[in-house]
Amino acid sequence: MRYHTPSSFEEASEIAAAAPGITRILAGGTDVLVQLRADIVEPDDLIDIKRISGTGDITRSDDGGWVIGAAVPGVSLSEHAALCADWPGVVEGMALVGSTQVQGRATLTGNLCNGSPAADSVPGMIAAGAEVSVVGPQGPRRIAIESVPVGPGKISLAKGEIVTAIHLPSRGAQGGDAYERFIPRTEMDIAVVGVAVNLRRDGATITEARVAIGAVAPTPLLVPEAGAALVGSTLDDASLAALSEAVSAACNPIDDKRGTIEFRTHVAGVLAKRVARTAYDRAGDAK
């Protein structure tokens, strides 16, 4: 295994584009190293992007949104008060990834690019309308989060393409987001179901809503019907029931060691209601 420490994304991209065998990007390493240890994937080339300037930074963008470098560990998000105030749902999704130790290393970008259907941070980013910027042989581009994962362990990036940062939009007025997952223990599990809700209120009425789900389909999904069920409502019982139904209907899970189809489908609907209440309350508390 060749270990590279490029000093720019252009250099990293060139190495990745030219690499003949299996290539992996190393940010936090909490998936890459597990796969290496478990003999699942042994890369021929491993490209550590942490020595690239700015990859560890969280910065406010000109439009009032946020740019989160590709190597920012989860703990840095949780410690960033202004980011937590704007996007508590995104931050809490990331904070649920692994242990305190894993939080010291794992990144939003890595959680996304690992391609797991159960990635805890991804539904929150989808619900937030986040984007990623990518560099590659064809030049830079910026794409929606939900277009990155395409199947279990698979992402849409081309050979030589590398995510450089996550972009969160400006929070704006009266917005709130939240994420919850179901696991059998209190910590350390992979999500059996995950639900994120991001909404905006005008007084008591919901004016915009995006709902995303995880661990219940081959990729995390945006569920427009679920968002639509909330818009125009005051989160009354009828809209919550419609939300729950839309979320359960969007589920296309598998039976596996972590949960059954019936369980996942049912619990997705249950969680959706709980998460929507949290997001709604947060939007009400926001200025």
Partner: peptide
């Protein structure tokens, strides 16, 4: 240990 779930 991720999926053999001992109490934490």
């Amino acid at each position: 240990f991720l999926d053999y779930r001992v109490p934490v």
